[in-house]
């Protein structure tokens, strides 16, 4: 579990506020392939993947709450959905710890799928009139694909932002030692 330090909390808060503002002020106004990218689930998924399930869930809750408040949406809805997205991404790291380069992309697509489908389900349960049409499903699918495409750079930026506040990854430390002139484990043996 990631140790909670003030610097880490501050960076997470700044990231949450920044990402919501960017999403509202710019990204949601840019149409690509007939749909908009959604940075929020990507960011929540990336935090979950980097910091674990609990941090991911809390960050998701916070981002959702801020988004609902700032955008005057139904409060609690985004929070609930992003809690799920952050938690699932974090659990994936904790249980599998996947190392493939494509993992952020898969997690981005998964987080977006949880978010978009979760919104749809919640709206349906809350009785909000949103007809499930082919157009809507196509839009959801397009968003998931678009988010998957931009997941890697978003993950890289989030990682870069949080890295100073994250504990040093033993795997990263080992790789660095080996590639910067340290002895190979074989030669040491």
């Amino acid at each position: 579990m990631t140790p909670i330090t003030p610097q880490f909390v501050l960076r997470l808060c700044a990231l949450g506020v920044f990402i919501v503002l960017i999403q509202v002020a710019a990204v949601s106004q840019v149409q690509i392939f007939g749909t908009n990218a959604d940075l929020l689930p990507l960011c929540v998924g990336a935090v979950g993947l980097l910091c674990g399930s609990m941090t991911g869930a809390v960050f998701g809750f916070g981002v959702g709450l801020f988004a609902d408040t700032a955008l005057v949406q139904t409060m609690g809805l985004s929070s609930l959905v992003y809690v799920a997205a952050g938690y699932v991404a974090g659990r994936l790291r904790e249980l599998r710890d996947p190392q493939a380069a494509i993992v952020p992309m898969v997690v981005g697509a998964l987080s977006t799928a949880i978010a978009t489908l979760g919104f749809g389900l919640m709206n349906f349960m809350l009785g909000i009139d949103a007809p499930v049409s082919f157009l809507l499903l196509r839009q959801i699918l397009a968003t998931i694909i678009l988010n998957a495409l931009i997941a890697l750079p978003v993950y890289a930026l989030v990682r870069r932002w949080l890295l100073p506040a994250l504990p040093e990854d033993p795997r990263r430390r080992r790789r660095r030692a080996y590639t910067t002139g340290g002895l190979s484990p074989l030669s040491r043996a």
Partner: peptide
């Protein structure tokens, strides 16, 4: 923590 967050969300939803 997860339960707390989910419950908080549901409370917020209900209250809203």
């Amino acid at each position: 923590v997860l339960a707390l967050l989910v419950v908080s969300s549901l409370i917020l939803l209900t209250a809203y």
